[in-house]
Design a protein around this nucleic acid. Structure first.
Lengths: 221, 221
DNA sequence: GTATCTATTTATCAAATGATAAAGAAATTT
DNA sequence: AAATTTCTTTATCATTTGATAAATAGATAC
């Protein structure tokens, strides 16, 4: 009945024992990749296999799959926000165009990463409030400051501006949307003909021209 | 053992017998709504309940769930393409601005419908080629013609244009992306502060200004 | 070296999934 | 009205899912 040699041959040379914090971090790191690939309906067994552990081991580190998913969110969205974005946008030692180019270069470097964007859309489709919350932060911490800095760069005060037919931030949203759309095409649709840098340059340039025109139009501040 | 009255009371007054074509269409129509809500991982039992039939009945009309899903795609994407888009964009009896406004009004009316956009993203995340195929059609049938018409409107020939730092269609992609992004915010993220019409007007206006500048810049045709 | 602790696995569960076969019921044909 | 066709349901299956309990095995303490 006993097969002493078989167990010695076939068995697992792989999984070593880890310190709890190490293992938990390892699980979380792999979970990000896994859920980005499979969506949140991806099975815990598939994830376990990818890590090289057995499926019930999750439940020592996370009470339920939902808890794991929530930690994935936190890791992806909160931890990857860079405060330097907000700081650098306000640094008026550099011209506004340079600041915008630099910001979008850094921002898209984070946001147009496959995991980030895919998880973002999985969350949006699932009706979670992650996206709305994130967008609110983007608007208040990034887009509104961008408009304020743009106004300042052209010697205007944001409050005194009377936009012709659109709300003040619409131009910023337009630039942001144009850039973001290229990331979607690249990462979600798998279109590899997209040139992000070119898109950023064009969007920023177009934005500044349009903003200047809008700000100079009502020249009676 | 027999409960004659119970069956008469509780039983199903709902499901009537239908002609095959009618039922198949009914299933397809509801499947679009259902998969747009739940994603393609939504269960066949949930869909059956929503229609008011039993789950095995699907397999009389569709060999497998995958086949049903494929018919959903076809119905949503192929059947909703409007040839008038291509025609009207080329109708130079109207100024280019009016044509663009009219086109995006009609286009977003179709594409920014909840079902359409959600299924589009579910497909994209699942790695299906629907999106890439659709985008190729958008580019060849809509965006490239838009650029050609724009050039014509400013008295240029598309081939003779030497764009400064970007490819010829980048400006069109930028406009398209800015508009599309608003649909995403509205339908995927559930942001109801989005004003699509305003976004269209701004995007078209900005595009035409930028295109004019780009076309007039290299004035040596 | 034995005992204790804890990280990991094996075995297992209940629920849900896509799918099939056979039974039932509403039409239609004759 | 009986027979036949076909639309629909009931019963059921094999897999897969998230999750738990008990057994194993690698550490550390004594």
């Amino acid at each position: 009945m006993t097969q002493p040699n078989l167990s010695a041959v076939s068995a697992k040379p792989s999984t070593k024992r880890r310190a709890p914090e190490v293992r938990k971090q390892e699980v979380l790191t792999e979970a990000i990749l896994y859920f980005a690939d499979e969506g949140f309906d991806g099975g815990t067994r598939g994830l376990a296999k990818r890590i090289g552990i057995t499926q019930p081991l999750f439940y020592r580190y996370f009470p339920s799959k939902d808890d794991l998913v929530n930690e994935v969110y936190r890791a992806v969205y909160l931890d990857r926000w860079q405060d330097s974005w907000e700081v650098n946008l306000r640094d008026d030692r550099q011209p506004i165009e340079a600041r915008l180019l630099q910001f979008y270069s850094s921002y898209t470097g984070v946001v147009f990463e496959r995991n980030w964007l895919r998880i973002y859309f999985f969350a949006g489709l699932k009706g979670l409030d992650i996206n709305a919350r994130y967008l609110r932060r983007v608007e208040s911490a990034l887009l509104i400051p961008i408009w304020a800095q743009t106004c300042a760069a052209f010697g205007k005060s944001p409050s005194g501006v009377n936009p012709t037919a659109h709300k003040a931030n619409d131009l910023v949203w337009q630039m942001h949307g144009a850039v973001f759309y290229h990331g979607i095409r690249q990462q979600i649709y798998g279109d590899n003909s997209v040139d992000i840098d070119a898109a950023i340059q064009l969007a920023v340039k177009t934005y500044l021209v349009a903003a200047k025109a809008a700000l100079m139009a009502d020249d009676h501040t």
